[in-house]
Amino acid sequence: MKQTEGMTLIVKTVTRISVWMILLYGLYIILHGHISPGGGFAGGVIIALAFLNVMLAYGRGFIKRWVNIGFLHDIESSSAALFLAMGILGMAVGGGFLANFISHGKLFHLLSAGTIPILNIVIAAKVSMGLFVVVWTLSVFHLDKGGKK
């Protein structure tokens, strides 16, 4: 790794420890989306910010080795397709597009509210990957010299 890539050692060390906590908090927000304020979108943004933290601290090259950007693209598109599939399933099983066809369960339990937790997870995958890929794409712009002619 080149010395110039990324930020100083302090930032890198703090990031290495804190990024997992950020990811955990994001997961918490997503999984409790149907019980408390928050949900797929907010949690997804938090997860995207964890990835961005790594990118800022360690530099773009590290991210490129650490995760496969094409794979993130695929997660994003497939989560959108999954969301649609849930909608169509609701159409087939329940009363209409995106109908909540699973039993609602008991209030304030983690496994309740039918399809909403599943949709929250799908939305979180879409939002986190989408937001990260957008910022990644913006950040690599001046890397390709002078753009395509």
């Binding site: 979108f41 937001l131 794409t137 913006l138 712009f141 001046h142 002078g146």
Partner: peptide, 25 residues
């Protein structure tokens, strides 16, 4: 407004991309 914020995020990202491309040209 949560929906509209998401839309604005998308539009802003697109506008910034276009601005970068315009700067290149």
């Amino acid at each position: 407004i949560l929906t509209s914020i998401v839309i604005e995020l998308g539009i802003t990202a697109l506008l910034v991309t276009l601005a970068i491309r315009l700067f290149e040209k």
